[in-house]
Design a protein around this nucleic acid. Structure first.
Length: 571
RNA sequence: UGGGGAAUAGUGUAAUGGUAGCACAAAUGACUCUGGAUCAUUUAGUCAAGGUUCGAAUCCUUGUUCCCCAGCCA
């Protein structure tokens, strides 16, 4: 079990935030209900990639275990071979580990308990609490009744124990085709909770399982299996999401009917985030229909997508702590996630200069062929990060948006006749803007003040702006991918009649810039390395990156006061 | 319309009968070799109506609104 810093990088938040689940655990510990043990579990089904919503659950379960000196099991709930794959198992293992959690030796698979579950099912059959039903799926549905009307009992409900035993064993032995029979719990077809109307425990599925192969042809249903898995592992607090609240009576019923170790199920609200979707079904659709590049597309809220985009595990853990845990549905503002990212990255990311949309600048009075290596601080937030040298020369690139020929009042940057500072270098003054035939500015002719070397004027004169820049001669060409929200709607699930969530995919969610110029220190940056491009935002080396063609993803922009002023002006 | 849950600033959350607080967002100002970071200030809330109480977000009653459940998915 890891015991890493629960504070997150921000440091301002409390050690561990309180919530109603920790209250329950405190009370249990006070009364000695579990003898002081705290054992939780994170039980993903390996049928998709983990997303930020899972991260909330992971941080809750592993966080509680760490806090209380207990343990958290990682358990694959692999009870449906038709949907599950080894690929998903592998990705989940990697994602949980990357998030910073360690399950130690407590890695489990529901499929390892299939024999035990079967034995327990036999026990229930023998005690007359389960029966083999020959109804078709349609009949079962029909007999279940509705929300307001009780169901009717299956005609197979009162078979003898001997016949049930015989049939169930033959089900297991593969004598019957898929869907022909089920094993059902004998509870109450008139129960107001539909989950209690003789729920199916086993279905026949002649399907190969990613771990047990063809050994089984009956597979347990979630309601039957889950409590047993928790029981086998001696879980104390079985934490799940709100939609399972209706299933708790069944969870309890099975465990009581068997008379075995009985954990407490506790439900909390799953995470929703603005401008994205969180359901596995929808994420799968985006991937399968190639509306995104894959499970690790940086626009996705998947762990792998966020990792590729440059989010740090610390940032995600901090976010999960900040959002809290509750019993009612809520939608967290994407801005809060971005705040957590900036907050953590600000303290750890080396600063570097990169020009995304280059505009050529020639310093007319700077000696031709001269190169100076200027001192640049790596991270003002971290004195220990040291400094580096960046080359300066006669020809440079600055950001296109840092020049305006006819600037509005509050524009502090370069324009004809104006003086600005080039960070860590010199003050320069724009003398002339050179245009092409179409009238577009293609080059700036400037002069520099040699006395301002390093960025300070000996005469004490001030400039209102400091620009980032890259020397042309040593610049590295790079590709930069800019991301915006994947959807244009705050809630993509809430679409007008007849449209689905894919109709509000943001056409500007990905913008690829191919003419970028980055400083030479970025030459051999390894994939997943995070930087702050000064004044532009946080960026991360993409997995597509190569020495020939470095590729960076924009993780998140910096807070931008000028952008706000501009936006207000255009409104 | 059966059953199960839940309602606190725009958003996310504290307060467990005793001053409704924090964070994000928004706004204003200070500072700044990142229009970053930092600091200060401001705006803004207990779903409604009754009741109990010296005192209610908290307890009671009635109502309103929202979420979940009719897979041989999890």
């Amino acid at each position: 079990m890891t015991t890493h810093d629960e504070k997150g990088a921000a440091g301002s938040a409390p050690e561990v935030r309180r919530d109603f689940i920790r209250d329950i655990i405190d009370e249990d510990n006070r009364t000695g209900r579990w003898g002081g043990r705290v054992v939780t579990r994170f039980p993903p089904e390996p049928n998709g990639y983990l997303h930020i919503g899972h991260a909330k659950s992971i941080c809750l379960n592993f966080g509680i275990a760490a806090q209380y000196g207990g343990r958290c099991h990682l358990r694959f709930d692999d009870t449906n071979p038709t949907k599950e794959e080894q690929e998903y198992v592998d990705s989940i293992l990697g994602d949980v580990r990357w998030l910073g959690w360690d399950w130690g030796k407590h890695l489990y698979y529901a499929s390892d308990y299939f024999q035990q579950m079967y034995d327990w099912a036999i026990q229930l059959v023998k005690s007359g609490k389960a029966y083999v039903c020959d109804q078709t799926a349609e009949e079962v549905r029909e007999f279940r009744g509705t929300l307001t009307q009780p169901g009717r009992e299956s005609p197979w409900r009162n078979r003898s124990i001997e016949e049930n035993l015989d049939l169930f064993i033959r089900m297991k032995n593969g004598e019957f085709p898929d869907g022909s029979r089920t094993l059902r719990a004998k509870i109450d077809m008139a129960h107001p909770n539909l989950n209690m109307r003789d729920p199916v425990m086993y279905r026949i599925l002649h399907a190969d399982h990613h771990r047990t192969g063809g050994k089984w042809c009956i597979y347990p249903m979630y309601d039957w299996a889950h409590g047993l898995e928790d029981s086998v592992e001696q879980i104390t607090h079985s934490i799940c999401t709100l939609e399972f609240e209706n299933h708790r009576p069944l969870y309890d019923w099975f465990l009581d009917a068997l008379g075995i170790y009985h954990p407490q199920q506790i439900e909390f609200a799953r995470l929703n985030l603005t401008y994205t979707v969180m359901s596995k079904r929808k994420l799968l659709r985006l991937v399968q229909d190639k509306l995104v590049g894959g499970w690790d597309d940086p626009r996705l809220p998947t762990i792998s997508g966020m990792r590729r985009r440059g989010y740090s595990p610390e940032a995600i853990r901090y976010f999960c702590q900040v959002i809290g845990v509750n019993k009612f549905n809520s939608t967290v503002d994407m801005a809060l996630l971005e705040h957590c990212i900036r907050e953590t990255l600000n303290k750890t990311s080396p600063r570097v200069m990169a020009v995304l949309r280059p505009l050529k600048v020639v310093i007319e009075n700077y000696p031709e062929g001269q190169v100076e290596w200027m001192d640049a601080i790596n991270n003002p937030e971290d004195p220990g990060a040291g400094s580096r040298k960046v080359p300066f020369g006669r020809v440079l690139y600055i950001e296109r948006e840092d020049f305006m020929e006819n600037p509005p009042k509050k524009f502090f940057r370069l324009s004809p006749g104006k003086e600005v500072r080039l960070r860590y270098a010199y003050f320069i003054t724009c003398r002339e803007a050179i245009k092409d035939a179409a009238g577009h500015v293609i080059e700036l002719r400037c002069t520099y003040d040699p006395a301002t070397r390093g960025g300070d004027a000996p005469d004490g004169r001030k400039v209102k702006a400091t620009l980032h820049w890259v020397a042309a001669e040593q610049a590295i060409d790079a590709e930069v991918r800019l991301y915006e929200t994947l959807f244009t709607r705050e809630n993509p699930d809430d679409m007008p009649e007849g449209q689905d969530f894919t109709a509000c995919i943001n056409p500007k969610s990905l913008e690829v810039l191919t003419e970028c110029k980055v400083e030479p220190s970025l030459k051999d940056a390894a994939p997943l390395t995070r930087y702050q491009f000064e004044r532009m935002g946080y960026f991360c080396v993409d997995s597509d990156s190569s020495a020939v063609r470095p590729v960076f993803n924009r993780t998140v922009t910096l807070k931008d006061a000028w952008a706000k002023i501009q936006q207000k002006g255009s409104e």
